Amino acid sequence: MPAFELIDTHLHLIDQSALSYPWLSGVEALNRDFRYEEYALQAHRVGITQALHMEVDVAPSDIESESAYIGSLAKREGSLIAGAISSSRPEEDGFAAFLERQKTNPLVKGFRRVLHVMPDDLSEGTLFRQNIKRLAGTGLTFDLCVLPRQIDKATALVDLAPGVQFILDHCGVPDIKGDGLNEWRGKITDIAKRPNVTAKISGVVAYADADTWRIETLKPYVHHVIDSFGWDRLVWGSDWPVCTLGGGLATWVAATHALLSGCSDSEKSRLFSGNARRIWHLA
């Protein structure tokens, strides 16, 4: 049996002694530190070889401090951290100058603006859209974290910036617990028609009922994303520590392998590492 390299494209680290996370006070299950050492122990056990840190919606004043903090962890001997997706505020006038600063930081591989907890029309703002277009030609990606009802707006943004590589987080955040397959499925099919969108197989265990989900629960969602995007436009992510809400890192890795049963070695290799290495120019 081949040993596949596994690149985690969606790791969150939380250190409340270093950074401020205003939203944590409303999410009791995650309102503690989740530091690199805890993640690294679990990651090594399940075969993760590299990780991209995903911004954790820190206070706006801490956005660049978060990148510096992650950079310090990446410099440690044997660190799994190979890059970072930075928080951003494309709706603000300062984004252009912010982008120029980040372009000089080799750690930063892309950006995200959390949209699923923001007003649905945020991405429709003129300034937001103009700033997203600035990413074209930079090699920097933009992660889309949207609810099913917002996928149409994400698709419109993608169409306005065909030169930007977008990453659709968490299979488009389906409401698995609420049996939301039908609402979500057609929108995934539509956004997948855009060649500049890659889907991230991540996060779904947190959207299922933690006490009752099985592989069969996740299968129609994950398989529809795979069928819609194809093996060259898929990456994998743990969404740690959010995945602890649905069983934890080892459970999600095991579930991923079960969901891919019957797939070829080439297909698994592209999903697990090859596409991520290409998209983010990882060594």
Rank of each mutant, 00 (worst) to 15 (best):
S273K: 05
F128E: 01
W23M: 12
T217H: 10
A74R: 08
S238T: 08
R278S: 15
F272A: 08
C171R: 02
V27R: 05
K187G: 01
E91L: 05
G230F: 05
S264H: 06
F128P: 00
R277I: 09
A74L: 05
E91Y: 07
P106M: 02
F111M: 06
T212I: 14
D57R: 08
L271Q: 02
Y39E: 03
P148W: 12
E28R: 14
K153H: 01
M1Y: 11
Y39P: 03
A43C: 07
S269D: 14
G26A: 14
G230Q: 01
L249R: 11
Q102E: 12
G110Y: 05
R35D: 07
V173H: 13
S123E: 02
R185Y: 10
R89A: 12
K177E: 11
A84L: 04
A82F: 06
K75D: 15
G110W: 09
Q130I: 00
S86Q: 09
E37W: 00
L80I: 06
Q42H: 11
S72C: 04
S67W: 03
E28W: 02
G262V: 08
D15G: 13
V108A: 12
T217L: 06
Y21W: 10
L73T: 13
W240K: 08
V225T: 05
I85T: 07
L147I: 03
H257M: 07
T104G: 11
N182A: 15
S86G: 08
L30R: 04
A258M: 12
K219I: 07
R185E: 14
C263S: 14
K133V: 00
R76F: 10
L52H: 11
Q16N: 13
L6I: 15
R76G: 15
P174L: 03
T244Q: 09
D33F: 12
V114I: 15
P90C: 00
E38V: 13
D211I: 04
Y39R: 06
S79M: 11
W213S: 13
A283L: 06
Y39D: 05
L80D: 03
N275D: 05
A283S: 13
R277V: 14
I201F: 01
G163A: 04
